[in-house]
Nucleic acid binder design. Sequence first.
DNA 1: TAGATTGTTAATCGATTAACAATC
DNA 2: TAGATTGTTAATCGATTAACAATC
Lengths: 209, 209
Amino acid sequence: MSKETKIANAVIRRLPRYLRTLEEMEAEGLERTSSAELSERIGFTASQIRQDLNHFGCFGQQGYGYAITDLKTEINRILGLKNKYKLIVIGCGRLGEAIANYTKTFEPQFDIVAMFDTSHDKIGSVVCGLPVLDDKWIEEYVKKNGVDIGVITAPAEFAQDIADRLKRGGVKGIWNFAVTDIKGMEGVKVENIHLSDSLRALTYYIAND
Amino acid sequence: MSKETKIANAVIRRLPRYLRTLEEMEAEGLERTSSAELSERIGFTASQIRQDLNHFGCFGQQGYGYAITDLKTEINRILGLKNKYKLIVIGCGRLGEAIANYTKTFEPQFDIVAMFDTSHDKIGSVVCGLPVLDDKWIEEYVKKNGVDIGVITAPAEFAQDIADRLKRGGVKGIWNFAVTDIKGMEGVKVENIHLSDSLRALTYYIAND
DNA sequence: TAGATTGTTAATCGATTAACAATC
DNA sequence: TAGATTGTTAATCGATTAACAATC
């Protein structure tokens, strides 16, 4: 942690939302905004927005508000988006392809360098412009190439083993799309996209209306 | 809402996790468990688990614990997974295909009935065993076929318009994969999968370690 | 200066944890 | 009956909101 003390998880989760809104406003040609205006766009209270932004330092100016471009730059920095990240995708199915494609298209800071699979039909081919390598070389590849993030799109039953090997290889983070929870990842940040949990939360709200 | 009063969002979000753990334990041949054992597997405190489960009625037995199959059945019911849901996927790109494929393979309660796209190369074809229909018929199709959930995998700039038409058609829920927030969805439950936000939270944790 | 809007403290609200009586 | 473990209340902790002094 830089200077700042422990930031609540809830705050971190809101930062990307601020960033998206600021990008939107910048695209509209706006130069300054206020917590009240952001509140209207996003739906959080103005008080919460000021509180959130203040965790990281004083980005606003009393009587004026916030300079959109400056604030955007700050949040970008806080989120670590000034850095570049090397990614590999493990699991070259439809989901793996979709994620690789999405990331290549929309997330320029994230550089996907290879895909991995166990199927000999796929190994050696090129998907989304990326070489598909043999799953068994994950750990070695991560070590040699300084991969930062491993993206797991393989079936749930392989996720734990893949994660263990990614960790031994030295990744800093795992983006996990497998419907399972990974254990023993001390020192590695794990971010889960549990499609199944999301869909089930949706049906809860539909069914209990 | 059935009998129960307002359940906190945080509780709902944990239910799918309980369900997954119970399924896992059932598959291992276990018949009963306790809040302490669940706590060890999941990582929530035993106290929280008892508190959570009690929101919905007394599923446990003092001195005994919880019957795994019964508890699983209850959570299934609470989450609305006893019902069937009709889905359509809008956006027949890689992500759309991946989601359609995932849902068809792993989520039997969810019946995907069609895909939609604007591209004339795709309209009329069959993807994942589903007909690809013309985007302009979404509203009509939803009305005629009683579609419950619309899955948006189209680019962000089209998401709001698609959501509006889904709403007019009468869907109960929207599963949104577009990197944007949808407005004016009163009466429609929206569940977002914001890949971009997830990735950015991950880099925050990596960068601010 | 007057008006606007932040930064920040205090109050409120909600969620988690601890404790233990109830009871199987 | 004794042991185990829930259900449930009370205590704690954390996050959100309200209020307002600071200041641009």
